[in-house]
Amino acid sequence: MSTDTVDQGPDRTSRLEEEGEIAADYLEELLDIADLDGDIDLDIRHDRAAVEVVADEEGSLSALVGRDGEVLEALQELTRLAVQAKTGERSRLMLDVGGFRAARRQELTVLAEETVAQVKESGEEIEMSPLNAFERKVVHDVVAASGLLSDSRGVEPERYVVVQPAASDD
């Protein structure tokens, strides 16, 4: 298990490792029940336990992703609850299945960069299509790195990001 966070104490690291192990056990049981083949990879990224279910055969885990990642979102919540039941603390672990989130992160980064360019060119804010919490976070991070502003508006499941020009110092 690797860590790519900075200045994290040993207690925090061991707690995140414990979260990952609990999540892995939970997911292995689920894979057995569903008669699905998959391996579990554990990591610590951005001060969170990161758990990925990977398979040798592409698409063999698609049932765990669902349409637009809906099943993956639900599975992540169930996994977080399983961790919380064992540790007594709320978990922020991130779950990926078959690289779905990694691929979606790349798509959203490109979309966010294109939107940033449009806002910089027009000087007008742009409302994006509804996104789930993971997707909005990716967009907010890209927008912040560009020097522009963003916020989320609306109510789930229609919550969306608005990309705004940078505040002027006038």
Rank of each mutant, 00 (worst) to 15 (best):
V116Q: 01
A166R: 14
A112K: 01
E113R: 12
L148T: 03
S146N: 06
N132P: 14
E114V: 01
K137M: 09
R101E: 13
A167D: 14
A167W: 12
E124V: 08
V143E: 01
E125G: 15
F134Q: 06
V139R: 01
A102S: 08
A103K: 15
A133Y: 11
L131N: 06
L149G: 03
I126A: 08
F100P: 00
P165I: 08
S168L: 13
P130F: 02
E113K: 08
A133W: 08
V97G: 02
S129L: 09
V119P: 04
T115F: 05
A102I: 04
R153T: 11
S168M: 13
E127Y: 04
V116I: 03
D141I: 00
V138M: 04
P157S: 10
G154V: 06
Q164I: 07
V155C: 01
A144Q: 12
P165T: 07
P130A: 03
D141N: 01
I126R: 13
E135T: 06
D169N: 12
K137T: 10
V110K: 15
V138T: 07
A103T: 15
E135A: 04
R153S: 13
R159M: 10
L108C: 05
D96S: 08
T115V: 13
V139I: 08
S146H: 06
A112G: 05
D170F: 15
E158V: 11
V142A: 00
G147D: 10
T109M: 03
V139W: 02
D96I: 05
D151P: 04
V163C: 02
V116Y: 01
M128A: 04
G147F: 12
L131C: 11
V97W: 02
V142P: 00
S150H: 02
E121P: 00
D169T: 12
E127K: 09
S152K: 03
T115Y: 06
D151Q: 09
R153N: 11
V155G: 03
L111Q: 08
F134N: 06
T109Y: 01
D151N: 12
V119R: 01
T109H: 02
